[in-house]
Nucleic acid binder design. Sequence first.
DNA 1: GTCTATATAATGATAGAC
DNA 2: GTCTATCATTATATAGAC
Lengths: 186, 186
Amino acid sequence: MARSSDKRERLLDAARTLFHTQGFAQTTLADISAASGVPLGNVYYYFKTKDELVEAVAADHEAQFQQFVEELEAAEPSPKGRLLRYLATIHEQRDSLKSHGCPVGTLCLELAKAGAATAEKADAVLRLKFDWLEAQFRAMGRDDASFLTERLLASLQGSALLANALNDCDIICRNLHWSRQWVEAL
Amino acid sequence: MARSSDKRERLLDAARTLFHTQGFAQTTLADISAASGVPLGNVYYYFKTKDELVEAVAADHEAQFQQFVEELEAAEPSPKGRLLRYLATIHEQRDSLKSHGCPVGTLCLELAKAGAATAEKADAVLRLKFDWLEAQFRAMGRDDASFLTERLLASLQGSALLANALNDCDIICRNLHWSRQWVEAL
DNA sequence: GTCTATATAATGATAGAC
DNA sequence: GTCTATCATTATATAGAC
């Protein structure tokens, strides 16, 4: 019938996963086709170009984070408690972060190097996270909220990179443990 | 004559620069050929494959760091002074770090995602830096030298990534300023 | 050692039947 | 909306003259 199937979502899921695990450049449309079960030629019905696909993936990361924030803010009124819960969710992703880095951070780096116009879409996701974290620090009464956010995000992104290169997940764990105490002491 | 010209070094320089600015996957051998002035077919006389080229680039990063360390250790006997000078050299590279990230860190990420065997060579460079930094902290009498190194390196790598994505070089500067005070207070 | 021409393979994208 | 077949391009790599 005329109603669109779930093919678009399956393509998006496959692309998001493969861009994370293999990188954008290394992932071919044939890979995405195979992983999603959507024939290669049909991919272009949903996404006219590979760039359009990665923009949709970035938008998906953004939507997922916004949904995460909504649920978190509904469940936890205290900004400090929200930050601690945020760190807890990152801890849950530690294995994936160690194996492939941050899905958003590594995508930003790769698209920036490619000189792609799509880099802005990925950067916007990171900025969204930045702004939300900053808002929490500000709600805690810190007027150095921006700087605190820089330190926290840099520490998270950097420890994911180090854990990946040095093949040691504990680097993420130790950093998160330290960050948690740091937030609690603020 | 039979003696090898400087072509190999010109190829290596071009590759190191292009892998940093464009990424490994986005850089074609034609790019390297054009940037170095060495005809495409001749590239293969010096490097049989693209993988061999990136291994040589990683080895070059390693050699450069080792030379930097030698000079630094000769000029500065104090481990704390060495760390502060190390931070100063990073500050000099701030524009490049903001535009393209850390040449070693981003290469590690990209090769890891590509699943390339060459990733180990890049990882070894980062590990070398890790070990040297750790040795300085240890020489300062810190038995938590490894953890301090993790925090410092993660902070440096992460702030380069953030500066790149958020297009703000000051993120690196503020982080370095903070790291300098942190080292001084140890 | 050097370089031109080209083989080979892979990939993004399209045409067009159904 | 779906899918097969294929085009056009690009990239790694090689062959072989000089």
